[in-house]
Design a binder for these strands. Sequence first.
DNA 1: CATGAATGAGTGTTCATTCAT
DNA 2: GATGAATGAACACTCATTCAT
Lengths: 233, 233, 233, 233
Amino acid sequence: MPLPKFICGKAAEPPVKRERRKDARPGELLDAALELFVDKGFAATRAEEVAARAGVSKGTLFLYFGSKEELLKAVVRENISGRFAEWNHEFETFAGSTAEMLAYCLNTWWERIGATKASGITKLMIGEAGNFPEIAAFYQQEVVVPAQALIRRVLQRGIERGEFKPLDLDYAIYSVIAPMLFLMMWKHSGGACVPDGFELSPEDYIRHQLDTLLHGFQATPSTPAPPNGGRAA
Amino acid sequence: MPLPKFICGKAAEPPVKRERRKDARPGELLDAALELFVDKGFAATRAEEVAARAGVSKGTLFLYFGSKEELLKAVVRENISGRFAEWNHEFETFAGSTAEMLAYCLNTWWERIGATKASGITKLMIGEAGNFPEIAAFYQQEVVVPAQALIRRVLQRGIERGEFKPLDLDYAIYSVIAPMLFLMMWKHSGGACVPDGFELSPEDYIRHQLDTLLHGFQATPSTPAPPNGGRAA
Amino acid sequence: MPLPKFICGKAAEPPVKRERRKDARPGELLDAALELFVDKGFAATRAEEVAARAGVSKGTLFLYFGSKEELLKAVVRENISGRFAEWNHEFETFAGSTAEMLAYCLNTWWERIGATKASGITKLMIGEAGNFPEIAAFYQQEVVVPAQALIRRVLQRGIERGEFKPLDLDYAIYSVIAPMLFLMMWKHSGGACVPDGFELSPEDYIRHQLDTLLHGFQATPSTPAPPNGGRAA
Amino acid sequence: MPLPKFICGKAAEPPVKRERRKDARPGELLDAALELFVDKGFAATRAEEVAARAGVSKGTLFLYFGSKEELLKAVVRENISGRFAEWNHEFETFAGSTAEMLAYCLNTWWERIGATKASGITKLMIGEAGNFPEIAAFYQQEVVVPAQALIRRVLQRGIERGEFKPLDLDYAIYSVIAPMLFLMMWKHSGGACVPDGFELSPEDYIRHQLDTLLHGFQATPSTPAPPNGGRAA
DNA sequence: CATGAATGAGTGTTCATTCAT
DNA sequence: GATGAATGAACACTCATTCAT
């Protein structure tokens, strides 16, 4: 029933270069998966596409990852683990002012995460958390919680050193996080958050946000808070 | 096989939601679809689930919507149409200060959109924009662009009336949008943006953000801008 | 992307007669499955083949049976349940000699089970018991145990009534069962037990076996064989 | 690579199963395959499992056997070759009574086949004959036919020597075969023929069957049963 | 010779979509 | 109109087989 293999007049088609690079595969697959999952969503990405983009066959994918879901988990782990340990250390030994610290924090985040493919993970998680509670929990515990803890510590430091006014940390934290979230959505939401053609310099945006944030955080012992600044009813 | 529903002679039986008015069907389907699409993602939601939640059969869904994709489009359109026309009008005739206007703007947005299921659409679009460029374009044009225009107009008014300092609008806009985006993700990201147990009062959060924003926007009445405000290196 | 359906010059091919006979389906599928499972083994039978033989599409199969394994379970149940209840009753009220009873037993078994497709189930179970312990247990409990109990009761009766000599029932039972097993293998083993062309009359074989069995069972070796020793009609 | 077989000068060193002699490979693979095929069926056994059990890699299996099917064929052939030649000889020169001969026959069969893994082949063939007609034919010709011929010859001898009454050999043969078949199914059917916990002594069972058989076969209707009929030692 | 990474045809299962009732 | 039985294309995953090392 199967047609003869070399029926076409051409020469015997090169018999499928079977490379052999066991160690390189998983990484390539994870990269391919990250990109496709972020672009098209988990459910809409076919396992075979991932394999193809990594330059291997479908079977090979399952040689390294037991299932598509395992692949997703691995993608999340791969792009996250260890980031915060390193980061926390940097901040424990930071010498400058807390304003500088916050600036360093955001800029570094952009460089290391925001500007890289890793930032797509957040979008991915937003879309799939509902279907994969296990992965969502993992992400939350490995990323969300440490990230917030880190920011909280920075702001706390500012308050303790008298650089920042007494802040309601539970809210202030999200003043810091929201802009980062925004940047990631700008990059990955396909226009669902920012009009397509919009030119945005993330670095400028971050600088801008820092201005605003620090302006709001700063102690300003002299200037009394505006009587009731534009506060909404 | 199922017994007739009202076989028992007794009286009781409250108005029984009537047979289900024909005309209401599409709306119920759209509601069901919105909820499920937001919860589980488009691809992971089965057409039959939507139908079941709307209390109709699978076939009926396709009677009203030619395909699952059409249903998605309709969901997006349904939850957006006309919002901005109404809104724009309100703001053209707004009398108070621009600070009040911005406050009104955010609070109203929360009431009418943020707090409702409609806010899930944004999450939905973020996840599916990549797979449905047509819908993404539609959403952008019908929602994202008008929304930004509206905010831009508000900020512009503040500047023109001397209430706000000269702002770089292209960036300032996103200082307003980011917090709203954050609130929507807080509600819909299933813990991918905010730790699960975190208690947040959206109203307080908005008030907080307004404080910060207005503080930053305000036209330095007396105090000269700090030499180099907390700007980060 | 998919090619137009009716591109070929012919008239529009009859659009797939969609019959609609819900109640008939499961039975047809079970029959088809029994036959194929017995012929080719469970693992080597494709779900689609079963569906095709039942005249439905692959999807329809899974509409009625959650999985191929469920189908196997259903096949086993379908062809067994209730047989023994009925049978036991017949024997409780049996009036004749125990020799006649045993003859009736074997002959009836052949008519109702051995000669029908149901006899293939035994072969099926023999082959698949290792892979489906759950089904094997079910089969054992529903078929093997009751069958042996029934035969034991018959032999016991013979002994109690002085028709049979005192038998070691634990072994005697299998003298009765082995020939039946043999007949099933003859039918279903594809020549692995009996040479292919061998003509065997099951009825004659059973008569033969009965002769031998009764000869061996019968009490009073001194007494000349009864004029027509318990021979069954 | 494999060391010379008896290189070690010392005494101790029990044969240590040596590195694994090249020549032994196919045999080990055949043993492993037999066991797995019998336990799980042909289709449900993975080539890799067979290799693993034989202590070699998947690739090696295909070095010795062109395909899984070839392996099956080899398993069947391997466990059959020459058995009957040897056997036939033994019987041609048998000196005792035919009753003794039959007893010897069954007991020897149990020792050499029934009690060994080879008995699983029958079960295997029963299950797979349908899918591998070629193998089935081979098995039939190499095993089934000779086995029946042998038994036929024994019974014939009994008749010719006046030890047995005139038997309808076509049926009598199967009175001998059925119990052996039963024993194999008892061992290999996973409870599909005999309830799981049932304790059966094959030797006792065979003795029992011999009694019955000889009782039925024996000539001399007038003569009371011989003091110790053809009973086997 | 032996290995095990790589392949891809094959199969169970799902689900959007159709259509006879 | 409404229904839900039926369909079949699509996809995750398996595993016999190949072949570079």
